[in-house]
Design a protein around this nucleic acid. Structure first.
Lengths: 151, 151
DNA sequence: ACAAATAACTTGTATAATGCAAGTGATTAC
DNA sequence: GTAATCACTTGCATTATACAAGTTATTTGT
């Protein structure tokens, strides 16, 4: 029935779990993707209660892996703005399926109206909206970046 | 790890990560769902190299959570057969999206032809096949169970 | 029938990851 | 200029995982 072609290190599930096979990484992604959080303090405020050292570690690792990007905050010299990259946004289908599963399997689960609608509509519209929003934010931050860089 | 710190959290992502937010749980699910593995020794043989105590722990937890079920092996009194429950099979869309992501983001990733085809075809056919296969196996094992139970 | 091998674990211990509290250094507010 | 704040870092306690060895019931070989 099954060949053992994919039992080696090239199993995509295994590769994926190298990146987000832990308790916190996908929660940071969730905050970025669906809850509009962008700053360290906002991630810290999520009520799962991530430890500050773990958050710092995950932000570093996600940057190294190219899933998020860090920009200086145009509004404040002591904060930074984190954004998902294209690669990071590519986790959207996984996140959506995880949320769907959570909703199906636990009646206590609740999501934003935005996500609720996305789920009912198949998810494509929200994905497109997130992509456009992301491009807009990135453009604004890069504009700021070159503006302040040229001073 | 999978403590329920999450008593008051209604976020489905967070609820989901209570169940499978670790390095090993989804690999066991993968083995059951896509690689036809059913026995302790088969899970141990996966190339990722899970520790024996961790495997035992995850099998227990998955049982408690109702994602897998344990049956006596009709062929051997010292082995058991593990099967996904309906609930466990309900993780299929997540697993498929994770595999898709792995394939998209890492060119080294390889899957069985079966899974490759499932991905190209949208995934519904393989899901149906897995469901039917699962029902057949469960029926066979339950038949054995009552047959041997009546001796 | 009996010894050896095997499957499926359990137990003990070393190591790595995480949680928690306190500290640091650069802003920013007063 | 001083105090408060933010985004971390550091140190230490706790927890999870890795690794190795042991255990028990079963099965295999002779």
């Amino acid at each position: 029935m099954q060949t053992d072609l994919n039992i080696d290190c090239r199993c995509p599930t295994s590769l994926a779990l190298d990146l987000f096979g832990d308790r916190w990484t996908l929660l940071v992604i969730r905050d970025l993707m669906f809850l509009g959080k962008r700053r360290y303090g906002e991630f810290m405020a999520s009520h799962e209660g991530i430890s500050t050292n773990i958050l710092a570690d995950r932000l570093h690792k996600l940057q190294q892996q190219g899933l998020i990007e860090k920009f200086p905050d145009p509004d404040s010299a002591r904060t930074a703005v984190y954004l998902l990259t294209e690669s990071g946004l590519d986790l959207y289908p996984i996140m959506l399926e995880i949320m769907c599963w959570g909703i199906r399997s636990d009646s206590r689960a609740r999501v934003t109206q935005e996500v609720e609608q996305a789920i009912n509509g198949g998810g494509a519209a929200l994905r497109q909206a997130l992509l456009e929003q992301n491009h807009a934010e990135r453009a604004a931050l890069k504009g700021q970046l070159s503006a302040s860089g040229s001073e």
